[in-house]
């Protein structure tokens, strides 16, 4: 039975499913490490997904699609930063507002500009020479037969971990999230750092949306993300605000999701409702243990005002 379940196809499927979560959760990690919770990730993903799709649909340029996703993500991230940093609005509520804006606006634009689901020639699968032919344990199929946006998502994890842990910028981000008063006293501009991380997070969320609409699915439909942005926020907590653990969480969630698809496909007699619940139940259980393991940024969700 395990041969039937643990196939290379299931692992490859897990990698594809994890891709949008990785982009969105890594971006959110930057924001949360600096003390800003952005619950509008899903809304930014939707806008990024639509904008990149429409750009590719109109121009056939994948590069333009990516640039547009980054731009839209940056603008919405900047907007969120303005609300949460400058206006010091309650972050949870303003994030939900941003989500609802993205949900509604992407749907409106879709109806007005496209009218009906259409497909584009998005990112094609790129088989890495030699490596994609590796037969041992299906490694070639699992890791080396994906589109460029999948490879890029996985490449971002070590880069992000390095930036956060071994650079001055990363040190400033962590300091601002942990003790903004101390960081401010040391001459670090709390507002500037938070503006940067939330805008960066928005750009990553835009890419997350684009990874769905022009790479994995090559189609846009209303509410395309189906709440994946919220799962990404949960994965940041799961990963203890560390990119490598966020990746582990995304992979675990996606692997169980891929496994439940395989369980049903090969006809193993488990109620499909139970199988579909499994990734979420597992994530909640893991989250309970994960949050005990790690300390969240002390200043998370707390606006900073000089002299407090």
């Amino acid at each position: 039975m395990f041969d039937e379940l643990l196939t290379a196809g299931v692992f490859a499927s897990a990698i594809r499913l994890a891709t949008p979560y990785i982009y969105a959760a890594i971006g959110e990690t930057f924001g949360q490490r600096s003390g800003v919770l952005n619950l509008g990730v899903d809304g930014i993903m939707l806008m990024g997904a639509f904008a990149s799709f429409y750009a590719v649909y109109e121009t056939n340029s994948l590069l333009l699609g990516i640039l547009v996703a980054l731009l839209v993500g940056a603008l919405l991230g900047l907007f969120m930063a303005f609300i949460s940093v400058t206006l010091q609005a309650e972050q949870g509520i303003s994030g939900i507002g941003l989500y609802l804006f993205g949900l509604g606006m992407s749907e409106l634009l879709f109806v007005k500009l496209l009218g009906t689901p259409r497909s584009v020639d998005g990112f094609p699968r790129v088989d890495i020479p030699l490596l994609s032919d590796l037969q041992f344990l299906g490694i070639g199929e699992i890791f080396f037969r994906h589109n460029l946006m999948v490879y890029l998502a996985f490449a971002l994890v070590p880069i992000s971990a390095y930036v956060l842990n071994y650079t001055t910028l990363g040190l400033n981000i962590r300091a601002v999230g942990q003790n903004p008063q101390a960081a401010d006293a040391m001459g670090v501009s709390v507002a500037r750092v938070r503006y940067f991380t939330v805008t960066l997070g928005g750009m990553f969320s835009g890419l997350a949306g684009a990874s769905l609409s022009i790479a994995l699915l090559k189609v846009f439909q209303q509410n395309l993300t189906a709440g994946k942005g919220f799962i990404a926020v949960a994965l940041v907590y799961f990963g203890g605000w560390r990119p490598t653990w966020v990746l582990a969480g995304a992979m675990l969630f996606s692997f169980v999701n891929a496994l439940q698809l395989q369980v049903k496909t090969v006809g193993i007699d488990i109620p499909s409702e139970f199988a579909v619940m499994a990734p979420y139940v597992l994530t909640i259980i893991a989250l309970i243990f994960a949050t005990k393991r790690r300390e969240q940024p002390t200043a998370l969700t707390k606006p900073f005002e000089r002299g407090e």
Binding site: A12, S13, R16, L216, A226, L261, K264, T265, G267
Partner: peptide, 23 residues
């Protein structure tokens, strides 16, 4: 092989269910 994904709206999961069928 039948795969009920328990969602009317999750396009990505439906796509992955299709990939699973093909594999």
């Amino acid at each position: 092989n039948v795969n009920y994904i328990q969602s009317f709206s999750d396009v990505a999961l439906a796509a992955e269910a299709a990939e699973t069928h093909l594999s």
